[in-house]
Nucleic acid binder design. Structure first.
Lengths: 138, 138
DNA sequence: ACAATATATCCTCAATCAGGCATATGTCAA
DNA sequence: TTGACATATGCCTGATTGAGGATATATTGT
């Protein structure tokens, strides 16, 4: 039985770029209703609601009923658990030396794009396939 | 076309508990080879290698060839991008007031477990389905 | 009670993913 | 070179996922 990463886990919840966008939007204001998010994001309402649902079940946001509206807010507590986890690796970027060494190692790079290539050429030309965004602040 | 969250995205890479374990194991020492991880984690080797592959493509770890061994190390730079993103939400847990308010709102809780219930009872008995670990430091 | 508004949930589909296992590739030692 | 060791990759499968669209549920105003 594969896959346990329940969507109600904070890490899984923020793995999706769209949901990160939602959190970002929520963070800008102090509480926002679904309609507001729909307008800001330009997404169909069901999609927004579903993203909010995942975030809600992950405990990353809270809801307050205001009449027919529902005001969503960022729930810091949960995000903090992610923060704390990442924080454990702080020492790996704190020292400049670390970065230098890491960079030196990156020279003799790792595997190529993984899916493509499969290039049977002798010299295994390492390449990381750097096509991702390095700052997923979506 | 659904699903874009490429595995070579740092957030997606750390979404999987197993991969978080690997990172944790790597963080304990200063460089570790696959065999070492296999022993520490008790996983079949292919699984370890595959986890490392994802982390590698996400730029979260680096490899250094040492003979037939491959020494993996945590790459702080990438983890930092996650750190920075989460950090933007710092104000949501910094103030105790925030937490108090959030807690007050949590009282009138959100949706029930999502999958189950569907209880047509009038009074919507909110429940967050708090069955996840709140500290995924796996 | 009815219509309109606001939001959540259901269903289906295509794509992705993790895990298991077998196997390929690479490297060292004799 | 041969064989053992170390690691990566390919394939298959069951399960999960996100998106889209339709629809259900709730709430307010008249």
């Amino acid at each position: 039985m594969p896959r346990i990463p329940n969507q109600s886990d904070a890490f899984t919840a923020i793995a999706e770029p769209g949901r990160r966008r939602v959190l970002g939007a929520l963070a800008r204001d102090e509480g926002r209703d679904v309609t507001g998010l729909v307008q800001e994001l330009g997404w169909p309402q069901p999609r927004v609601s579903k993203s909010l649902g995942v975030l809600r079940r992950a405990g990353l946001v809270t809801v307050e009923r205001r009449g027919r509206r529902r005001v969503y807010r960022v729930n810091g507590g949960r995000l903090r658990s992610v923060y704390d986890w990442v924080r454990h690796f702080e020492r790996f970027w704190e020292s400049q030396l670390e970065r230098v060494r890491a960079r030196a190692e990156r020279i003799e790079r790792e595997s190529r794009s993984a899916r493509e290539s499969h290039n049977p050429l002798k010299g295994e030309h390492d390449d990381n396939g750097h096509r991702e965004r390095n700052h997923p602040h979506d």
